Amino acid sequence: MKTKKVLILGGVTEGYILAEALADQEGFHPISSLAGRTQHPRPPVGETRIGGFGGVEGLRAFLLEGAIDAVVDATHPFADTMGQHAALACDQAQVPLLRLERPAWEAKPGDRWYPVADWEQAVALLQTQGARRVLLALGARELAPFSALDDIWFLARTVTRPDPMPPFAAAELLVARGPFSLEQELDLLRGHAIDTIVCRNSGGEGAAAKLTAARELGIAVIMRERPPRPKVPVVASVESVLDWLARDA
Score class of each variant (00 low, 15 high):
Gly58Ile: 10
Phe28Ile: 11
Glu183Val: 05
Leu188Thr: 01
Phe154Met: 07
Glu205Phe: 12
Val238Gly: 07
Ala209His: 07
Ala171Asp: 07
Glu183Tyr: 03
Tyr16Lys: 08
Pro230Gln: 00
Glu26Asp: 15
Gly110Thr: 03
Gly203Pro: 10
Arg49Asn: 09
Gly206Gln: 14
Asp69Ala: 10
Val159Tyr: 03
Ala236Cys: 07
Leu7Asn: 02
Leu138Arg: 01
Phe28Cys: 13
Leu149Ile: 15
Ala87Pro: 00
Asn201Asp: 14
Gly110Met: 04
Trp119Ser: 15
Ala207Tyr: 10
Ala213Leu: 11
Leu242Ile: 12
Pro164Arg: 01
Gly27Asn: 11
Tyr114Met: 14
Thr81Arg: 07
Leu97Lys: 02
Leu22Asp: 09
Ala93Ser: 01
Leu34Ile: 14
Ala249Leu: 07
Ala236Glu: 07
Ala137Gly: 13
Leu100Ala: 07
Glu172Asp: 03
Ala236Pro: 05
His29Tyr: 15
Ala107Asp: 00
Gly54Asn: 05
Arg200Gln: 13
Thr75Met: 13
Gln39Thr: 03
Ala171Gln: 08
Val72Pro: 03
Lys2Pro: 12
Gln129Arg: 13
Ala140Trp: 02
Gly139Asn: 01
Pro43Trp: 14
Ala140His: 06
Ile50Phe: 13
Thr81Phe: 10
Arg200Trp: 11
Gly110Glu: 01
Met165Pro: 01
Pro145Ala: 08
Arg177Asp: 02
Gly66His: 12
Arg141Ser: 05
Ala193Cys: 05
Leu63Pro: 04
Gln127Glu: 14
Gln92Ile: 06
Gln184Cys: 03
Arg215Ala: 08
Ala93His: 03
Glu216Asn: 05
Glu106Met: 10
Asp150Met: 04
Asp195Phe: 04
Ala124His: 15
Ile197Phe: 12
Gly27Ile: 14
Trp105Ile: 14
Thr212Phe: 11
Ala213Thr: 08
Ser32Glu: 10
Lys108Thr: 05
Ala140Asp: 03
Glu65Arg: 08
Arg224Leu: 14
Phe28Leu: 12
Ala156Gly: 07
Glu172Arg: 02
Gly36Arg: 01
Ala122His: 08
Pro41Ser: 04
Glu239His: 10
Ala21Tyr: 10
Ala19Met: 13
Gly110Cys: 06
Glu101Phe: 02
Pro109Ser: 10
Leu149Gln: 09
Glu239Asp: 14
Ala208Val: 12
Pro115Thr: 03
Leu245Asn: 07
Glu47Arg: 15
Ile31Gln: 12
Asp187Gln: 09
Gln25Trp: 06
Gly51Gln: 06
Val6Tyr: 05
Leu18Cys: 13
Tyr114Phe: 15
Leu98Glu: 00
Gln25Ser: 13
His192Val: 09
Arg224Val: 15
Ala176His: 09
Gly218Tyr: 03
Glu20Cys: 09
Gln184Ile: 04
Asp24Pro: 04
Val116Glu: 12
Arg229Pro: 00
Ala74Pro: 08
Asp73Lys: 00
Leu126Asn: 05
Gly66Lys: 06
Arg60Met: 13
Gln84Val: 02
Arg60Val: 09
His29Ile: 13
Ala209Pro: 05
Gln39Ala: 06
Arg132Pro: 01
Ala61Ile: 13
Thr48Phe: 12
Thr81Ser: 07
Gly66Met: 14
Glu185Val: 09
